[in-house]
């Protein structure tokens, strides 16, 4: 993978929640490398927590990726929650392009 940061915490004993940590370059340039891993995780676990921190690049592909994950979880009746912490400039771009409500709804 290029500059994307990816970490996964296996569920503790007795729980089925998998925690995924993403950061760095989360964009059209890197997400295709991440996709197979996420697909596998989404298939295997019934509960996911996506933590997004220390992001340098974030674009439309990243938003679509998160929305897609949310849709999949809904379709497969799985639990998913997002904890997103983006830098101010990225948040401004997201807001100016009309996606603030979308992110808030995740």
């Amino acid at each position: 993978m290029r500059d994307i940061k990816f970490k996964m915490n296996q569920p503790q004993k007795g729980e089925n929640l998998v925690r995924i940590y993403l950061g760095g370059d989360l964009s059209v340039n890197t997400l295709s490398d991440l996709l197979p891993k996420i697909r596998a995780i989404e298939k295997d676990y019934s509960e996911m927590e996506i933590n997004i921190n220390e992001v340098n690049v974030f674009d439309l592909a990243s938003i679509q990726f998160l929305v897609s994950l949310q849709k999949s979880a809904e379709r497969h009746k799985k639990k998913i929650r997002f904890k997103i912490d983006l830098p101010k400039d990225i948040m401004e771009l997201i807001e100016n392009a009309g996606f603030l409500k979308v992110l808030k709804k995740l």
């Binding site: 295709s32 929305v67 897609s68 849709k71 100016n96």
Partner: peptide, 30 residues
Amino acid sequence: LFLIEELCGFGTSLIFPRLHKVPLISKLDT
């Protein structure tokens, strides 16, 4: 995103992004 940001910088805007075509993760092409 930059195009929309530039456009909306021209005045007051109300933006509705439409994401209904985004597929499930199994079908997603990033």
